[in-house]
Structures are given as structure tokens and as C-alpha cells.
């Protein structure tokens, strides 16, 4: 099987997944560097006016991701990797797509930012479907409710009780190296 379709199920209703329903967060965030964080968010909110919660202001949103006052008005060109990623995540906190995809989150962050983003992801878990790829088993064990492994081009689901067992890592390594001994 190498084709298919994705559907979003709300209660009993299944709808095909559209572009608007998915938010993608790049591991290497690319943002327009000539804008300040504040300007970029203002622009983003103007464009997506119909999708956002009108009661929150830009500064409220900045507070959610703990973004300093002076940093909001600096050019994105001078932002660190972690700051740019926070801005990316903020974009999806604003427009709230039901599904959020992350590519290798938390790689190359410093400790503080990594923990903040992990906390953020845990909060967002309640209202969004978050799918991310990672090679850090610890992160998967910490955050995930379900886990699949991609090995030699095949997807394998991992039962939920393995996910929270102490021998989790050993079992995963066993599963991954099974195929490579042939």
C-alpha cells in the first residue's frame, strides 16, 4: 500500500483533510528577516483575520510564548534559532489548525527554550492533533500518546503500554535492528 487519503474525524463526522486544517512547523524556521517579530505577527493576523480569536492582542500572544518586550521589536534577522521557532509556534497558536505537524522539534535548542516548547506542546495537546517526527526516544516517551516507527520504508505501530514501560528503549532498538540483520 503506497497511497491513500487523510480524514479528520469530529465526533461521528469524517471529512477529508484540507490545506487549512494542517499547520507545518519547520525544523529550520524560515521567516522574513527584514520584519520585527511584532510586525510579522501583525501581518500574519491581518491575513488570517477570519480565523482568529478577536479578543487577544498581539502582546497577549507574545506573553503566551514568553517573548521579551525588547525582543518583540527587534529584526527577525537577529533572532536566535529558538526565538524563531517560538514565533512559528505562535502562528499556529493564533490560527489553531486542528492538525499540527512538526519536523524534528527541539533539535538544536538551548535547554530553557527546549523545556518551554515542550511545555507548550503539552498544553496544545488538549486541543490539537500533534504529529511530530523525532529520533530522540526520550521526547517520544515524554510527550506522545501514540508512536509509530518507520523502518525500511514500513510503518509499525507501537502498543501504548510499551510506550510507558521502563524497557521502552530496549524494545524499540530491538524492533529497529530486526530488519537490518538480513
Amino acid at each position: 500500500m503506497d497511497s491513500g487519503a487523510a480524514f479528520l474525524r469530529k465526533e461521528e463526522l469524517s471529512q477529508p483533510l484540507g490545506d487549512e486544517d494542517v499547520g507545518y512547523i519547520f525544523s529550520l524556521p524560515i521567516l522574513p528577516e527584514f520584519l520585527t517579530g511584532y510586525e510579522f505577527l501583525k501581518f500574519y493576523m491581518d491575513i488570517n483575520l477570519d480565523k482568529i480569536d478577536p479578543t487577544k492582542t498581539i502582546d497577549d500572544y507574545f506573553a503566551i510564548i514568553k517573548f521579551g518586550q525588547e525582543d518583540r521589536h527587534r529584526l527577525i534577522k537577529g533572532y536566535s534559532h529558538g526565538m524563531k521557532n517560538k514565533i512559528q509556534m505562535l502562528c499556529f497558536i493564533i490560527t489553531r489548525p486542528p492538525v499540527i505537524l512538526l519536523d524534528e522539534p527541539l533539535t538544536s535548542f538551548d535547554v530553557i527554550v527546549a523545556l518551554e516548547i515542550k511545555k507548550l506542546l503539552r498544553e496544545m495537546k488538549q486541543d490539537h492533533i500533534i504529529i511530530f517526527s523525532t529520533h530522540i526516544l526520550q521526547l517520544a516517551a515524554d510527550l506522545c500518546d501514540e508512536l509509530v516507527i518507520l523502518n525500511h520504508g514500513l510503518l509499525q505501530a507501537i502498543p501504548a503500554d510499551t510506550l510507558h514501560s521502563p524497557a521502552f528503549e530496549e524494545q524499540i532498538i530491538g524492533l529497529l535492528s530486526d530488519g537490518s540483520d538480513d
Binding site: 491581518d46 521589536h73 529584526l75
Partner: peptide
């Protein structure tokens, strides 16, 4: 873009508050 040319006051300025969306983006650019 050259970063050091812009002071903090310039970056905070509200001279483009009136514009919206792409007009805003292009004006800043």
C-alpha cells in the same frame, strides 16, 4: 537587509499602523 541601520525607536514606530496585510508588508519592505 542591513540590520545595524535601524534604531529601536524606528523599529517600534507606528508609522504603518494604518496599513493592513500586504500593503503593510510591502510598505515595511
Amino acid at each position: 537587509t542591513i540590520e545595524q541601520d535601524y534604531t529601536a525607536e524606528h523599529l517600534r514606530s507606528s508609522q504603518w499602523e494604518g496599513k493592513k496585510g500586504y500593503a503593510y508588508l510591502n510598505a515595511i519592505f
